[in-house]
């Protein structure tokens, strides 16, 4: 019955009200978007919040943890830092610890990584012929974390229909609900 009352409400809306509903929807999306872009600008990283997908960093990070990253130019990468990097050609970022660094005087660095819970270093993961990672592969360094919250993202990615369904239902309710 309540769904039908929404339909009547929508029919009673005049043109300007309808435009405002659409703009309201747009503003909610824009607010989320602008907060994300704002975080990108503040942290200097192209993906300031990532979810840990595997258990290769246990016991520090578990699958489903949320990580906050920063990527400031002035802070050099040192052995022991936990970095999130992307290997060229693959789009899933990896969270591992820096093992070894080679640094030149002009601050060019190359480094080797390994997951805390892995037996071997990451050379097996790099592209064929690649032995070291460079600064350009790095998305950021882990600065803070929130446990468990990323499980929602993992669920949504495993069941994409669930994601579209939830988004569609939320979008529908925002468009239809009149609030003055």
């Amino acid at each position: 019955m309540e769904i039908f009352s929404f339909v009547d409400d929508v029919k009673r809306m005049d043109k300007r009200q309808a435009i405002y509903q659409v703009l309201n929807f747009g503003m909610i999306i824009s607010t989320a978007l602008m907060i994300w872009k704002g975080l990108m600008v503040m942290t200097g990283s192209e993906s300031p919040i990532v979810v840990v997908l595997s258990g290769s960093m246990e016991p520090a990070f578990h699958r489903g943890d949320l990580l906050l990253l920063t990527n400031y130019e002035e802070e050099p990468i040192r052995a022991g830092d936990i970095v999130v990097f992307r290997i060229e050609g693959r789009d899933i970022p990896i969270v591992h610890r820096v093992l070894k660094i080679h640094e030149k005087n002009d601050s060019y660095v190359k480094f080797l990584t390994k997951g805390d819970n892995n037996q071997v270093d990451d050379r097996g993961l790099y592209s064929p012929g690649q032995l070291w990672l460079e600064k350009k592969d790095v998305i950021g360094r882990a600065r803070g974390f929130l446990p468990y919250i990323g499980m929602v993202t993992i669920l949504m990615n495993d069941y994409p229909q669930l994601k579209y369904f939830v988004l569609a239902v939320l979008g529908f309710f925002v468009l239809v609900h009149r609030e003055n």
Partner: peptide
């Protein structure tokens, strides 16, 4: 007289345009 409502619509529209442009 639609002036009040229009003001609200214009501000929202410009805000959405900014965010769309950034995107």
């Amino acid at each position: 007289d639609y002036k009040l409502m229009d003001g609200r619509l214009y501000i929202s529209l410009i805000a959405c345009l900014f965010s769309g442009f950034g995107l």
